[in-house]
Nucleic acid binder design. Structure first.
Lengths: 225, 225
DNA sequence: GTCAACTATATTGTCGACAATGATGCCAGC
DNA sequence: GCTGGCATCATTGTCGACAATATAGTTGAC
């Protein structure tokens, strides 16, 4: 079980960022990560290289790696691109849609509702991004999938940095609306619902977001294990 | 001069792919790369991790890294996203446009013409992608820039795999048309010209029609399953 | 009391070596 | 002659150690 590949480690860190246990600006010390995951620093460096290329962490020479701190303009760009990508995902998805996939979607939304009812913040965040990721995966488009992975990671970073209230999340109701349109085969309506949904999420963000202090790295990474 | 950072190495390899000196499916042996760049294998692995995350190389455990081989669907997705991203670039660019930037653009196109006249394939390829990269850089949008870098790398890979004739390239004339619209401040026309340009490039590819020869025996035999 | 320089520590950058795994070529057996 | 197994080799996966650099804490002078 210690046989975690570099990809898997990256996945874990990405998840920690997506779930906002790792906040923007947080330092990522190599030795600490190495100990947490029980691997050597060399592999940690490999993983950090991946994440840096992905834009989730920034690193300065001889200073180390930090969770990236996106700015407002980047945020707007990212949501702009998300609109395009996710609409494409919907197009692709429509071709490969079947009953089992639709069932999986409604099951997912149901989970979102439960998490909402229980006010389980971490689950809410994870599931919210997860819904969009699920759609991309179901579309069976590798490139879009990777891109969405990137975009959702960054979006989580952005909401962590700029979100106005802790309460808001990628609402289950709007997700359900998208599913409804998918079920009825109305591509146009589904795309419109998606666009509206993303607009809504973007609107919930505020321009000037002061950063919060960071907890311990270990807690952040092992919190959800 | 031996002080090449990992990023710079990645840049060099990316360029080699963009210039199609590294072809899809080509093997990237770690020791070889290490010797070529005069660095240790550890750093090579770091670089390969970056490129893998970027999607330019694929790697299988215990088998090594290879230049990625994009498939047709990926190609279509990538061009779809490029349309969106580049239109966003144009929007962003319009705000920050000045005479010096326009001059740089026409100078670039002039270089393209020269390369065309001399039939310098490598220069043509490099400059063609370079024009789009230039626009992204001028837009001063880090995220879009990184994304464009990714997309252009992949596009080069795609053209290497699917291009119909060696003659075609990202034509200087169409680039110039975009510049013209930018100069006159007509965002809509510029975006339209860009869309048309990308359509043209995509059409030049052999994306529909016969598939390439199967990569493996298994694919050949089980292709219809 | 404050600032500057210096030292000590912590952290990152780089490398070579060893272990594990897949690929290649050879040889015996049928 | 061909097939299957085996030994050899090449290549990747992983690691710990050492050097270079930034950070922070301390001491001393003003």
């Amino acid at each position: 079980m210690d046989a975690l590949t570099a990809e898997q480690i990256a996945e874990r860190i990405w998840l920690s960022i997506a779930e906002r246990r790792l906040r923007p600006g947080m330092r990522l010390k190599e030795a600490e990560l190495a100990e947490v995951f029980g691997i050597s620093r060399a592999r940690v460096r490999q993983v950090l290289a991946m994440l840096e290329r992905e834009g989730l962490v920034t690193s300065e020479v001889n200073k180390g790696a930090f969770v990236a701190e996106p700015n407002v303009e980047e945020a707007r760009d990212i949501f702009h691109i998300r609109r395009s990508v996710e609409q494409r995902v919907i197009e692709r998805l429509m071709d490969r849609l079947d009953e089992s996939k639709l069932d999986a979607m409604v099951a997912h939304v149901e989970q979102e509702r439960v998490a909402n009812a229980e006010n389980d913040q971490r689950a809410i965040i994870k599931l919210s991004g997860g819904f969009h990721m699920m759609l991309a995966e179901m579309a069976q488009a590798d490139f879009l999938c990777g891109l969405m992975r990137d975009l959702i990671g960054r979006s989580s970073l952005i909401t962590a940095a700029f979100r106005d209230s802790d309460k808001y999340n990628c609402g289950p109701d709007e997700h359900e609306e998208i599913i409804t349109h998918l079920r009825s085969g109305d591509v146009k309506a589904a795309k419109k619902a998606m666009a509206h949904h993303l607009d809504h999420v973007e609107k919930e963000l505020r321009l000037s977001g002061e950063r919060e202090a960071a907890k311990s790295l270990k807690d952040a990474l092992l919190g959800g294990a």
